[in-house]
């Protein structure tokens, strides 16, 4: 069965706002930066924040979102029992 493409119909009456476009672009950049920063390593939130030069709380939000979307996973906790490390999910 041929798939209908109703999103194209919606485009005729609904304009996607610039904000949505900008945020989408920004998210993709941040995601790439985080994944690159982690690479082969296991890093905690302050490390990642340092590496990509973003505030810790924003880093937390994006890393946690990437964990939720199955891109990252938490591994062990540091010796001080303070921070989890995160790595790229296979």
């Amino acid at each position: 069965m041929e798939k209908k493409e109703t999103f194209k119909i919606k485009r005729e009456t609904h304009t996607v706002s610039q904000r949505v476009k900008d945020e989408l672009k920004a998210f993709n950049q941040i995601r790439r930066k985080i994944l690159e920063a982690i690479g082969e390593e296991e890093l905690n939130i302050p490390d990642i924040a340092d590496k990509i030069d973003m505030s810790k709380e924003e880093t937390m939000y994006y890393v946690m979102s990437l964990v939720k979307f199955n891109k990252l996973q938490a591994t062990a906790m540091d010796d001080m029992d303070e921070y989890y490390f995160y790595k790229i999910k296979e």
Binding site: M1, K3, K4, E5, T6, F7, K8, I9, K10, R11, H14, V16, S17, V20, K21, E23, L24
Partner: peptide, 22 residues
Amino acid sequence: IENCSLCGACEKACPTQCIDFT
């Protein structure tokens, strides 16, 4: 819809064709 980019990815991915922007 306020945050949708109307890229159509969801519609293409849906196995039961239940996404309906109309």
